[in-house]
Design a binder for these strands. Sequence first.
RNA 1: GGCGCAUUGGUGUAGUCGGUUAACACGCAGCCCUCUCAAGGCUGAGACCACGGGUUCGAGCCCCGUAUGCGCUGCCA
Length: 501
Amino acid sequence: MTERVRFAPSPTGYLHIGAARTALFNYLYARHNGGKFLLRIEDTDLQRSTDESTRSILEGMAWLGLEYDEEIVFQSDNAEKHRQAALKLLEEGKAYRDFTPKAENSDKNIKEAIAERARAQGGDKNMRDNPFRDLPKEESDARAESGELFAIRLKVGETGKTSFEDAVYGTQERDYSEIEDLVLLRSDGHPLYNLAVVCDDIEMGITTVIRGQDHLTNTHKQVLLYEALGATKPKFAHVPLILAPGGKKLSKRIHGPIVSMTTYRDEGFIAAAFRNFIALLGWSPKTDQEIMNLPEMIDLFTLEGINRSSAIFNFDANNPKRWTDDKALWMNAEYIRTMFLGELLPLVKAELKSAKLWREEYEDEDRVWFEKTVDLIRSRFFTLKDFSSQGRAYFSEDFDFDETALKKNLYKEPKLREWLPELADKLEAVEPFEHDAIQAAVSQFAEEKAVKVGLVANAARAAITGQSVGASMFEIIEHLGKMRVTNRLRSQLAWQNYQGE
RNA sequence: GGCGCAUUGGUGUAGUCGGUUAACACGCAGCCCUCUCAAGGCUGAGACCACGGGUUCGAGCCCCGUAUGCGCUGCCA
């Protein structure tokens, strides 16, 4: 039987990092087993669902390269089928009408309210005490016909327990006494989550459900539904949650854009790198290999490799250098410096375009120069953003001078103000304008001034690139060319704010 | 409150049928390389494997308890 799995996000916000990982795992599982990866948008909560969210989820998945098979299923389109299923269960006596008037829940602090109520009841709550549970059919029918509103609840058995085999957490059991008679259909006829999920999973022929561990207890209710509906239940695999530092829940409200997939795209992450990073949160190939491309990941992925404890996504909101997980940043840098140049170029192009630094010549007569530039500077960069910030001097004459570069490499030796233009004159005469000849010229110049080569080279770097760090100075000089280099060395721009030391 | 799940260095993870100096990666410190910074190479700090009891000649691995965290407990998803 071919495996069919699905990713089923509710469109109530952007694509959350945890959801993205769930999608990834589903995708990997499907591809590893030659199965189908389906997408279902769970938009049954009309109040909170938005098209904007759906678009953002789709964008995030496309960015990560998670292509789904078959048409997207919108859960709201199936509402009528869900209702029919509930009615069928009612007909068969497996569900009952509950005429209790709907309690108005203010959705503010609803979680706390529920927990509070549960605490007050203690552990003695009898899940089978609904007065309408055993209402005679005739009376129930009569009240319904008279127009009285009712919800439909599943009639959970008096004794017994549900059980299922979880591929990650092992055998799971739950006594019926712990499961309430869950509402299937709201009194306004609106089908609820558990019913909708089960109906759709059956309809879509889902064979394995891979989802967050927060659904582990929901699964027992769904197992009951599969049984009532006479359907065979799929395999289940619950994946551990991704938490914020300190083991707290990673939430949009508290942690902001750090949890959104789009943030990483917008902040210059390589999709392959981020995908690689989140794959390793809660899953391991059980080898020392960490850098994996998609085909390798697909090849190595198994449910057995998923572990049970939740992972912490590390970051420090107060430290700009650690705005997101260290390892994610490292991995992105690793990808930037080792990926095929041909794959990196379009990404750099997009970044330069958005920073208004892109010139069409880079794809035409300056193509080779552009490629060499990217290759020259990429090894020190962490994100694509660095190409337009730290790397700005390579693409524009209008760049800023880094404060450290100014103080450490220029202002410390005031004579450099005269020396640099002199160095420019010297370089002017270098022919051919190549690495070794340039190095010889700079060394000679340093010797004449009786200073270390490093002093001159670092000063030149500051004046030419605005940075205190970067590639070999001689390579940079050769690469940028005589014209730009001499102009920048003669320019007094860097000394504008010099106030003496 | 009840029920469920989890617990290996700061973080992500390895640890086969119980016998290891508890491994790898990120991060951190130092050294080498060097015109700087990365990269690379080398070295180091950091975990009595949450805690307490068992079982055993021997436990990170098995059992029980406790603590902590998380999840569920809704006519939300």
